Amino acid sequence: MRTVIGLASGLLFGAGLAVSGMLDPVRVRGFLDLFGVWDPTLAFVMGGAMIPMAIAWLVQRRMAAPVADADFHLPDTNPITPRLLGGSALFGIGWGLGGLCPGPALAAFAINPAAAAVFTAAMAVGFAIVWALDRPPVHA
């Protein structure tokens, strides 16, 4: 059941990205270009996403448990750390240069496989570097 819900959620997310035009890196870069020809489309997409998310938070508060799991797995509200700031900065730089982030990059394989492949390869290298740095030391 969890797999079906995850697959349906991913398909809905990808369809939303495609319909909204957020798979087009030029459109995303246009949103980030505040002093050039600014494209507000992404602001409307983000604003539109806030409405169902606000409803989801209200519904979640009234539920004892999620539909497909025993407990809710909500993120902690940890303080801002140097690691969070560094990761956010790297994400923003990659998003600004590539015009994609992880979700749209994977969905973009259906529309522009070459650009998606380059971005996804760079993203995978970044993931591997973080994974290697985060591994606990091996004691012999």
Rank of each mutant, 00 (worst) to 15 (best):
R2P: 00
V4M: 04
I5V: 08
I5E: 04
L7F: 13
A8D: 08
S9M: 14
G10Q: 08
L12Y: 02
L12D: 02
G14T: 03
G14M: 05
G14W: 02
G14I: 01
A15P: 04
G16D: 01
L17F: 12
L17V: 12
G21A: 06
M22N: 04
M22A: 02
R27W: 07
D33S: 15
F35A: 14
F35T: 13
G36F: 05
D39K: 05
P40D: 01
T41F: 02
F44Y: 13
V45F: 12
G47T: 07
G47Q: 09
G48I: 01
I51S: 12
M53C: 05
M53A: 11
M53Y: 13
A54E: 03
A56Q: 05
W57S: 02
L58V: 06
L58T: 05
V59F: 08
Q60G: 01
R61H: 10
R61N: 07
A64M: 10
A64C: 04
A65P: 00
P66T: 00
D71Q: 12
F72L: 08
F72V: 04
L74M: 15
P75D: 11
D76G: 03
N78K: 08
T81P: 01
L84F: 14
L84K: 12
L84C: 05
L85T: 06
L85P: 04
S88Q: 10
L90V: 12
G92H: 04
G92F: 13
G92T: 10
G94D: 11
L97M: 15
L97Y: 11
L97C: 13
G98I: 01
G98C: 11
G99N: 13
L100R: 02
C101L: 10
C101V: 03
G103M: 13
G103A: 14
A105T: 02
A108C: 09
F109Q: 04
F109E: 03
F109K: 04
F109T: 01
A110V: 06
N112H: 11
N112T: 15
P113C: 05
P113T: 03
A114W: 13
V118N: 09
V118W: 07
V118S: 11
F119I: 09
F119R: 08
V125K: 10
G126S: 08
F127L: 15
A128P: 04
I129H: 07
I129V: 15
V130T: 09
W131S: 09
A132E: 14
L133A: 13
D134P: 00
D134S: 14
R135K: 15
R135I: 03
R135G: 13
P136S: 09
P136G: 12
P136Q: 15
P136V: 07
P137D: 06
P137Q: 10
H139I: 05
A140Q: 10
A140G: 13
